[in-house]
Amino acid sequence: MEGVVKKFMFVNRKAPYGTIYALESLEVVLISAAFDQDVSLAFLDDGVYQLKKGQQTKGIETKNFSPTYRALDGYDIEKLYVEREAMEARGLTEADLLVDVTVLSRRELGMLMDGMDVVLSF
C-alpha cells in the first residue's frame, strides 16, 4: 500500500441538512487527506446546494458544516468540480458558491469520472 496513489472521486448529489449524507461524505473526504491520494470532489444535481453561501443553521439546531469546504485546501484537497447544468437548473451561479470551484458540463464530468480509480458516491 505504501506509495500507492489512486485517483479518488467523491460524488455529492444530495442537498445538506435534509439528510446526513453531505456531512458524512465530507468526513470521509477529510480522512482521505491523510492517505496522500489524488482526491477530487464532484458536486452534481442537488449536491451543488452543499456549496451555497450564507448557510445559517441556528434555527434548526444543527451544526453548520459549510465552512469546512473552505478549509479543504488546507488539507491539499483543491479539486472541486461543479456541474454547470445542475447550477443553471437551480438558478445558481459561481458567485453563489462559498468556495472556488471548476465548473464543468455533464459530459466533461463524465470524462473526468472515466479516469478515476475509485468513485465513492453519497
Partner: peptide
C-alpha cells in the same frame, strides 16, 4: 428520483 437522467447525462459513449 432523477438518478437515471443524471446518469445518462454523465455516462460517456461505451459505458
Amino acid at each position: 428520483k432523477n438518478c437515471l437522467d443524471a446518469c445518462l447525462g454523465v455516462a460517456t459513449d461505451g459505458a
